[in-house]
Simulated assay, not measured.
Amino acid sequence: MNSVERMFDPAPEANDRLSDASTWERGAIHWASGEQKTLTCCRVVDETHDVKSFEFRVDDGSPIRFEPGQFMTVSASVQGQPVERCYTISSPPTRPYLVSITVKRVPGGVMSNWLHDNMKPGTQLRAYGPSGSFTPTAAPAVKSLYLSAGSGVTPLMSMTRASIDLGLDRDIVFVHSARTPADIVFRKELQRLAELSPRLKTFFVCEGMGDEDGWSGRVGRLSLQLLSEWVPDYIEREAFTCGPAGYMSAVRTLLQEGGHNPARYHQESFDIGAGIAPEPASPKCDATQETFTIKLSRSSKTFTMNASDTVLSAAKKAGVAIPSSCSQGMCGTCKTKVLEGTVDMNHNGGIREREVQKGFRLLCCSRPTSDLVLEL
Rank of each mutant, 00 (worst) to 15 (best):
I164E: 14
C334K: 01
F303H: 11
R352Q: 12
P10C: 01
S151N: 07
A14E: 08
G332F: 07
M157A: 09
R85E: 08
T180D: 11
E207G: 14
G359V: 06
P368I: 01
H260R: 12
G220L: 12
N306S: 14
I322N: 04
P278R: 06
Y265D: 04
T102L: 09
V356M: 11
C285E: 08
E236I: 00
F203P: 00
P280V: 12
V205Y: 03
H260I: 09
N306P: 04
P181R: 09
F54Q: 05
R170Q: 13
H347M: 01
D213K: 10
K37Y: 03
P93C: 03
R43W: 00
S131I: 06
P198N: 02
S327M: 13
T302A: 06
R367S: 07
I351N: 07
R367V: 05
P278I: 00
R199E: 05
L227C: 07
S308L: 05
S19Q: 15
A76S: 12
R361Q: 14
I101T: 10
A28T: 10
R57M: 13
E189Q: 13
Y146C: 11
N15D: 12
V231T: 11
V343A: 11
A239M: 06
N306D: 08
D9E: 06
R179E: 14
P155F: 03
M248S: 08
F270W: 15
A139M: 06
L255Q: 06
G132S: 03
A194S: 15
C41W: 10
A21G: 00
E84S: 15
C285N: 12
R6F: 03
G329T: 08
T94Y: 09
A149M: 12
P92N: 02
G319E: 10
S3N: 12
S325K: 08
M345A: 10
L193E: 09
V78R: 10
Y87N: 04
H49R: 13
S366D: 03
Q225D: 15
P262H: 11
H30T: 12
S62D: 09
S370K: 10
M7C: 07
I64V: 15
A277R: 03
V320C: 06
C206V: 04
F240W: 15
D9L: 09
E13V: 05
Y87E: 08
V45G: 00
